[in-house]
C-alpha cells in the first residue's frame, strides 16, 4: 500500500528502465572506437551527455572534457535516482552509492600523496555519494593525509583510516589506506539488511561483489608475489573466502585459480580463468569479473522487476558505460588501435 514513508519502486524502476534504453550499445561503441577525442565529444553531445558537454565545453577540451563530462553525468544521474526514491528503496540504493564516497576519499588521499593540484583532484571527484559539498570542500582543503583523516573522523571511514595510517607511515605506500576505505564501505554495505525476497537477492548480489573483490585482491597479491599479509586485505561479508582461506590461497596462484573455478562462480568465470592461466593477464580476468557482475545484476533485475534490483543493475551498467567511454578516449589519446581498445571494453 502507498503510505507515507514506504518505498516507490514502480516509479523509480520505470524511469531507470527508460534511461537504460538510452545507454550505448555495441553499435555505438564500435563507432566510438573509430573516432578521435573531439569526435567522441561531439557524439556524446548529441546523446544523453549533451548538457554536461555544453556546460564544460568552454573550459576544457579533448579527453579531459570527456572525462569531466562523464563524471558529472554519472553524479547527476545517481543523484536523480536518490531524489526519486523513497523509504526503504532509498536506503537500499544509498547503501550502494556510498561507494562514491569511498572513491572520493581515495581520490583525495591520492591527490594529497602525489601533491596534485586542488582543482585537478576536484575534477576527478564524483559527487554521487552521501558526503555533502561542505565536507568535500574540507576534504579538498586538507593538505596532509592526517588532515584528510581528521575531516573524516565522524564518518565510518575515520576509525579504519586512523588504524591504517600507522602502517602507511611505516611503509609509505597507499595500499593500506585504500583498503581501509574499501573495507569500511563493504562492511557497512551488508549490515542490517531487511527481509523480503528481493532484498535477500540484493544481499546475495552484494555478497557476490564482495567475493569478486576478494578474488581480484587475492589474485593481484598472488601474482605480484609481494610479501604482504593477504588476510589484512580481506573484506568481510562474502561467501567464497574466509580470512584464513584467502590467506592460504593467495600464496599459490594455481590453487587460487582452481578454487575459484570450483566455486559457484566457476561457470561464469571459467573462460576468463583459463585465459588467465594461458595469457597470464589479470586485465582479462578483471573484465570478466565485471562482466559477470553485470550479467548477474541484469538477471536479478528480470526476476524481480519491481524491486531494488533493476535500479542496481542500471547503476552498474551506467558505471560500465562511463568506464568504457573513458577507456576509449584514453586509448585514443595514447594512440591504440581500435582492436586494442575494443579488448579493453566490457560490453554485455
Amino acid at each position: 500500500m502507498s503510505a507515507a514513508g514506504s518505498s516507490n519502486p514502480e516509479y523509480v524502476v520505470a524511469r531507470v528502465r527508460a534511461r537504460r534504453g538510452s545507454l550505448y550499445g555495441d553499435e555505438e561503441y564500435r563507432k566510438l572506437t573509430r573516432m578521435g577525442p573531439a569526435e567522441i565529444a561531439r557524439f556524446m553531445e548529441e546523446s544523453s551527455y549533451g548538457e554536461e558537454i555544453n556546460a564544460l565545453g568552454s573550459r576544457h577540451g579533448g579527453v579531459d572534457l570527456i572525462e569531466y563530462a562523464l563524471n558529472r553525468n554519472l553524479a547527476e544521474q545517481f543523484d536523480d535516482i536518490l531524489d526519486w526514491s523513497e523509504g526503504t528503496l532509498y536506503d537500499l540504493i544509498a547503501r550502494y552509492l556510498r561507494k562514491f564516497d569511498a572513491w572520493n576519499v581515495k581520490t583525495v588521499i591520492r591527490g594529497v600523496y602525489t601533491d596534485a593540484d586542488q582543482s585537478a583532484v576536484e575534477a576527478d571527484l564524483i559527487r554521487a555519494g552521501e558526503f555533502d559539498d561542505r565536507r568535500i570542500r574540507r576534504l579538498l582543503e586538507a593538505d596532509s593525509i592526517d588532515g584528510v583523516i581528521e575531516v573524516l573522523e565522524d564518518t565510518i571511514y575515520g576509525e579504519p583510516l586512523r588504524e591504517a595510517y600507522a602502517e602507511f607511515e611505516e611503509t609509505g605506500v597507499l595500499v593500506p589506506l585504500e583498503n581501509a576505505v574499501d573495507r569500511a564501505f563493504y562492511e557497512r554495505l551488508l549490515s542490517g539488511l531487511g527481509g523480503d525476497e528481493p532484498t535477500r537477492q540484493y544481499e546475495a548480489f552484494l555478497r557476490a561483489e564482495v567475493d569478486f573483490r576478494n578474488a581480484t585482491n587475492a589474485l593481484r597479491l598472488a601474482r605480484s608475489g609481494a610479501d604482504i599479509d593477504p588476510a589484512a586485505y580481506f573484506i568481510e561479508g562474502g561467501d567464497l573466502f574466509t580470512r584464513s582461506s584467502l590467506a592460504r590461497l593467495a600464496q599459490n596462484l594455481d590453487e587460487l585459480v582452481e578454487y575459484i573455478g570450483d566455486s559457484q562462480y566457476g561457470e561464469e568465470l571459467g573462460p576468463a580463468l583459463r585465459e588467465l592461466e594461458a595469457a597470464d593477464s589479470l586485465i582479462a580476468f578483471e573484465h570478466a569479473i565485471d562482466g559477470a557482475l553485470l550479467a548477474y545484476g541484469d538477471r536479478l533485475g528480470t526476476i524481480h522487476p519491481v524491486s531494488v534490483t533493476p535500479v542496481i543493475s542500471y547503476i552498474l551498467a551506467k558505471e560500465r558505460e562511463t568506464e568504457n567511454i573513458r577507456a576509449i578516449a584514453r586509448g585514443k589519446e595514447a594512440g591504440l588501435s581500435p582492436d586494442e581498445i575494443e579488448s579493453e571494453l566490457v560490453i554485455t
Binding site: 514502480e10 523509480v12 524502476v13 520505470a14 524511469r15 527508460a18 534511461r19
Partner: peptide, 18 residues
C-alpha cells in the same frame, strides 16, 4: 484502485523520461 496505483506510478515515471 490498488492495481492502478502501481501501474500509474510506473506510467508517470516512464512519461517523465519520454
Amino acid at each position: 484502485g490498488y492495481a492502478e496505483r502501481g501501474i500509474g506510478s510506473a506510467a508517470v515515471g516512464a512519461m517523465a523520461e519520454d
